[in-house]
Design a protein around this nucleic acid. Structure first.
Lengths: 192, 192
DNA sequence: ACCTGAACACCGTTCAAGT
DNA sequence: ACCTGAACACCGTTCAAGT
């Protein structure tokens, strides 16, 4: 039987769900292919309960990753209020890079579990797309980037971030990539 | 017991190895997580034989992908002989895109089986790096791109190619990405 | 030196029985 | 309505026996 649409979960089910997500974040960050059975056990629920909440690995990983990424997305608006559009864009990219490095293990889990190509792409139209749209529009209006760049274009351009090794000097590599992307975006801008 | 270093394989072993690779290419292209046991069976070898040649999934996928990618890499030199440096670079990127789309299933297998971040990165320093080095140096000398771009920079910049869906209008998406990258590379070029 | 295939271990998924 | 945990299926890996 399916869950009635939008019916609130029973309180014990609600708690189970949250405990699973909590444990999953920790476990998947540590090792991208942590067994689901181990997550269930650490969360203190039976196998069946686990599968009631998350019918497959993909749905679990997606949920965890979505929540984590949302947090970076939300900072975009704030940056735009305190800085010039192009500075805000670049700084947001830096934060995204920092985040991608911190959650590298989770991103690996994403890649392996999802059939989606790319970690951000898997989230579909969500908080990240909104944030990027906001930033690009502000820059286009300020004349700091060339017109007609779509959020999709942008996400493809920075895709390299997720294949930088979080150990070693990722700061250098990420910085050089983002500089290159910014130069690409600036090419053909009205205010140049 | 390990294989003696560089000792040639016995002829039947040689044939088995080739048949495995052949079947693996077809099978992995069709479905990224085709069972190794199915590959072994289709190749007509026992489980043990399979594992003698490829001790884990990663080593198999790596070998298949390496060989496939090599073919595109090899066209770089040829392009440089018949075209201006920047035209050659751009055209090579187009071919790489075409290739990435044709072998999308295999690339998925790469991502899932390898711990390496990114499909090209997993190959390490090989034919691709050589090709890119060649192209970048030619362009730097021609003054068509800014100096100091490393092969690593370049590969990160085009990483988005592998997360384009091979169905639908990938031509558009790839084209826009590569245009953006080219603009980024041109920024700060002496001959501008 | 290389091959085979049965045996083993592990993990995802299902389901009968419970509250 | 939700939970449990044993049972099942599948796949990667090993290994004793063979040529």
């Amino acid at each position: 039987m399916q869950q009635k649409k939008d019916a609130p979960l029973r309180s014990d089910a609600q708690r189970n769900r949250e405990r699973i997500l909590e444990v999953a974040l920790a476990e998947l960050t540590h090792s991208a292919d942590a067994p689901l059975s181990a997550i269930a056990k650490k969360a203190g629920v039976g196998q069946g309960t686990f599968y009631r909440h998350f019918p497959n690995r993909e749905s679990l990983v997606l949920e965890v990753y979505r929540y984590e990424v949302q947090q970076v997305a939300d900072t975009a608006a704030q940056l735009l209020e305190t800085r010039a559009a192009d500075r805000a864009l670049r700084e947001w990219m830096d934060r995204l890079a920092q985040y991608a490095m911190a959650k590298a293990g989770l991103a690996d889990a994403m890649r392996k579990a999802t059939s989606a190509r790319g970690t951000l792409a898997g989230l579909g139209h969500g908080a990240v797309t909104s944030a990027v749209t906001l930033l690009l529009e502000a820059n286009e209006q300020a004349g700091t980037i060339r017109p007609g760049v779509s959020p999709d274009d942008f996400m493809l351009a920075i895709a390299g971030l997720w294949q930088i090794d979080p150990h070693g000097d990722w700061q250098q590599r990420a910085g050089r990539l983002l500089d290159l992307v910014m130069d690409g975006l600036r090419a053909g801008a009205p205010g140049a």
